[in-house]
Design a protein around this nucleic acid. Structure first.
Length: 479
RNA sequence: GCCUCCAUAGCUCAGCUGGUUAGAGCAUCUGACUGUUAAUCAGAGGGUCAUAGGUUCAAGUCCUGUUGGGGGCGCCA
């Protein structure tokens, strides 16, 4: 018999039909005459209830069925007598596909801590929380592609291995086939890469932006959506060594066009999630409220779905760095020296406590900060006429901080060249990037959206290691 | 990388200022229960209190190292 997915099964009303359903046991409850098995196959958050009439044969079978076992059940679709569900399956034949020894299987029909599940990451898909996150994550991936496709953007696969060692976005993971025990050396003691796979030093990409720009300067509107690698020793709830990033790059866009696109994108995907992942989001909302029930009322986060709708309804606040500094300088925590880093004046780099103040206390909505001092931003950003700021924009979200970082790019060859010289970036690795400003340069803009940070916001999870199936962080590469 | 906190049964945790055979709930096993909803009720098994030292008449409890983990900060997406 052909298997019916639980998601489909639960919507059917053709009671009396013979069906087959397969999945993994979440709980088993038995009494004298009847037993109930809650089974899940991941097609939906909800379980299907399998009703088993007790007799000698089923009694033996049920003794082998525990949480985690996989079953194939043939039975009759029935309207449920119980109150917890509309439909259930009256089992006729139960085949145990795989047992799960309860002495060894780590998951139980109860709440586990996220820390415990993180150490059992190979099994955590089997929990409601992680399967819900996985489904939401998928929906968001799909929504992102749909958003760009609908607007005529082309998806570009930028390289994962790069020969450029000056992308400037962070420490890189080196890629080599050289024997690390016996590295070939040049006469001056440096490593001789001539016999390495590419004949030169190679790294994993920290950003697809520079290559994305090359594509945008021909196709107009492109986006990348790929893995990104940063070898930073970052130990926080919002950093990963391997993460996924969306990087659109648009020819003929100025900074305002760029901000408009980023705000539209974020609102579109949040709306898509609300429309397509209602059950999972409701579950995640309850999970979050349950987790925070012991916190003081003022420390609890806004209810998840309310928070997501709030982002849709409100235009993001848009302020320049200079305005933000003024707000912070005259803020209570700055005057009373409650900030760990008190803002002394223009030019200060904003710490996360300042960003949180702006988003959570002052504006109480997402904030786009623009026109940062050139000294604290990347070399490729377009220089403003004031000579001291660049056309950068960061989007700050409550709780997670920076979710988008972008800018209008410097399209003037002379200005870009001078900047590269000023920062001692080797011209030999950047010549092709500079060339785009020599041949038909145009104003253009782009940004990077941290996908996992978006999923944090969307799911109400608080640690980025719980929104990617297999997190890579310093000293953590178990699964 | 810096700062902080934590480690007691398979899981979640209690164990007050060091003081007799280390507790609970869930899970497991046994039994009860005519349909349950992480079912309920009764009983059983299960711990060299992360690890190595030290202080003390006495250490789960105090001190030090090690390992594992949480949180905050920095770097940023």
């Amino acid at each position: 018999m052909k298997r019916t997915e639980i998601k489909t099964l639960l919507q059917r009303t053709d009671y009396g039909s013979t069906i087959n359903v397969k999945g993994w046991v979440r709980t088993k409850r038995s009494s004298k005459n009847v037993a109930f098995i809650a089974m899940n196959d991941g097609s939906t958050l909800n379980n299907v209830q399998i009703v088993v009439e007790m007799n000698e044969e089923n009694d033996k079978l049920l003794n082998r069925i525990h949480t985690g076992a996989s079953l194939s059940v043939d039975g009759i679709l029935a309207e449920s007598m119980g109150s917890g569900q509309k439909v259930e399956v009256q089992s006729q034949t139960i085949e145990i596909l795989g047992e799960a020894n309860p002495d060894e299987y780590p998951l139980q029909p109860k709440k586990h801590s996220l820390e415990f599940l993180r150490e059992k990451a190979y099994l955590r898909f089997r929990t409601s929380t992680f399967s819900a996150v996985a489904r939401v994550r998928h929906a968001m991936i799909f929504a992102i592609h749909q958003f760009f496709n609908d607007r005529g953007f082309y998806n570009i696969h930028t390289p994962i291995i790069t020969g450029s060692d000056a992308e400037g976005a962070g420490e890189m993971f080196q890629v080599t086939t050289l024997d690390l025990e016996h590295l070939p050396k040049n006469p001056d003691g440096t490593i001789d890469y001539k016999n390495d796979f590419f004949g030169k030093a190679a790294n994993l990409t920290v950003s697809g932006q520079l290559e994305g720009e090359l594509a945008a300067l021909a196709l107009s509107n492109i986006y990348t959506f790929g893995p990104t690698f940063r070898a930073e020793n970052s130990n926080t709830t919002r950093h990963l060594a391997e993460f996924w990033m969306i990087e659109p790059e648009m020819a003929f866009y100025d900074l305002t066009d760029n901000m408009d696109l980023a705000e539209d994108l974020l609102k579109y995907v949040v709306k898509y999630g609300l429309d397509h992942c209602k059950e999972d989001l409701e579950f995640l909302s309850n999970r979050l409220q349950d987790e925070e029930k012991n916190k003081k009322a003022e420390e609890r986060s806004m209810e998840l779905i309310e928070k997501l709708k709030f982002v849709l309804d409100e235009p993001f606040a848009r302020v320049t760095y200079t305005e933000a500094i003024d707000i912070l300088m005259s803020s209570k925590p700055n005057k009373k020296q409650q900030f760990q880093y008190v803002i002394e004046g223009w030019g200060a780099d904003l710490q996360s406590e300042h960003e949180r103040y702006l988003v959570e206390k002052h504006f109480k909505r997402p904030v786009i900060l623009t026109d940062y001092p050139a000294s604290i931003k990347a070399f490729y950003m377009k220089q403003n006429e004031d000579g001291k700021t660049v056309r950068a924009m960061d989007i700050l979200f409550p709780q997670i901080g920076e979710i988008v970082g972008g800018s209008q790019r410097e399209e003037s060859y002379e200005k870009l060249y001078a900047k590269i010289k000023e920062l001692n970036i080797p011209e030999s690795t950047m010549w092709w990037y500079l060339d785009t400003r020599k041949f038909g340069t145009v104003p253009h803009s782009g940004f990077g959206l941290g996908f996992e940070r978006l999923i944090l916001f969307m799911t109400g999870m608080t640690n980025i290691r719980d929104v990617i199936p297999f997190p890579r962080t310093p000293l953590n590469l178990e699964f």
